[in-house]
Computed example of a mutant assay.
Amino acid sequence: MDLRSIECFLRVAETLHFARAAEELHLSQPALSQRIRTLEREIGVVLLERNRRGVRLTAAGAAFLDPATAALARGAQAADAARRAARGLQGRLRLGFTVIASYTTLPHAVQTFRGVCPEVVVDLVEINSPAVEEALDRGTLDLGILHPPLERPHLRTRELPGEPLVLAVPAGHRLAEQPAITFADLRGEALLAAPRRIGPTLFDGLVRRFREAGGEPRIVQEATPMTTLAGLVAAGAGVGFVTRGIARATRPGVVFRPVREAPAVPMAAAWAPPGLSPAGARFLEILTAGPASES
């Protein structure tokens, strides 16, 4: 049975007058009568008795009244929920992101999104960039914030501002008081770096900068994520590159210095085809608007 027919029955039951109910429903009286007859045939009982003296509910109609009222209300709620979900205002958003992304404007965007769309449940998953791609491919994430280029080129992406790299050095290190550092200054230094498989483009870019400066990087230990790398720097294991966002989260015993011509970590939002979910699209709008536009 359709909700419109239930609404017609309820209006007649309220007014006990077909002509008045038809006017309120913006229907012709024959069309209203046809809807009631169709509803009665579907249920298999007579709901309304009509005679010259007027209209009255049958026993079956009286029993049908409260459940029909509840069904109409639930139908309206369901329709509203569907419309809100289609606008990205209700539902669930499964968001995956890297450690580096968690030190960008992403947390602020999540906070803003939760304020704008309180009925959307946000699931947050912190994993590395290849794992974000895999999860998007499997359909276990709706949106990912990761580092291109992607291993899965069929995923759709939107470029985000890159994260500049700075050098983390132990306090008291010879470079700690140097305001500007070059790659030539780093020749022979014990270097901590993420494994190439985690970010081949960034890794190769750093190696290229070292070679252009006339040397090779002396990688003494692989470390990931960058927050762990910063901890190893504090312990005196060497120097290493972290993003400017991670550097803002100050760590005792570590000094952060800019390095001339240091590459930036590329950032992008990614999702699986055929398209981004409504909640994901709304979140991406907030993320790309930036903190100044969101406040």
Results as ranks from 00 to 15, higher is better:
I100H: 03
T104H: 04
T105V: 14
L106T: 09
P107C: 04
H108Y: 06
Q111N: 13
T112C: 13
T112E: 10
R114T: 13
R114Y: 08
R114Q: 15
G115K: 13
G115Q: 14
V116A: 09
V116T: 09
V116E: 13
P118G: 12
P118C: 13
V121M: 15
V121R: 15
V122E: 14
V122Q: 15
V122K: 14
V122D: 15
L124T: 12
L124Y: 08
V125C: 11
E126H: 00
E126Y: 00
I127P: 02
I127W: 03
I127D: 11
S129V: 07
A131P: 01
A131E: 14
E133A: 04
E133L: 04
E133I: 05
E134A: 13
A135S: 14
A135N: 13
L136N: 03
L136H: 02
D137A: 13
D137Y: 09
R138Q: 10
T140E: 14
T140I: 12
L141K: 10
L141E: 04
L141M: 12
L143S: 10
G144C: 05
I145N: 03
H147W: 10
H147P: 00
P148G: 03
P148Q: 10
P148S: 02
P148I: 02
P149Y: 08
L150G: 02
R152I: 14
P153F: 04
P153R: 06
H154V: 05
L155T: 03
R156C: 12
R156A: 12
R158V: 13
E159G: 07
E159K: 11
P161N: 08
G162P: 14
G162W: 05
E163H: 02
P164W: 09
L165K: 06
L165A: 08
L167N: 05
L167S: 09
L167K: 08
A168M: 03
V169K: 01
P170Q: 10
P170S: 03
A171C: 07
H173M: 07
R174P: 02
R174K: 04
L175D: 04
E177F: 01
E177C: 01
Q178T: 15
Q178D: 06
P179W: 02
P179H: 02
A180D: 11
A180W: 05
A180M: 14
A180Y: 00
A180N: 09
F183Q: 10
F183I: 09
F183D: 11
F183S: 12
A184W: 00
A184V: 04
D185W: 01
L186E: 07
L186K: 02
L186C: 06
R187V: 04
R187P: 00
G188W: 01
E189Y: 01
A190E: 03
A190L: 00
A190K: 02
A190S: 11
L191M: 12
A193P: 00
A193M: 10
R196Q: 11
R197G: 00
R197I: 07
R197C: 01
I198R: 09
G199E: 13
L202R: 06
L202F: 11
D204N: 14
D204I: 08
D204R: 12
D204A: 13
G205Q: 15
V207D: 06
R208D: 15
R209K: 14
R209A: 12
F210C: 09
F210W: 14
F210Y: 15
F210H: 11
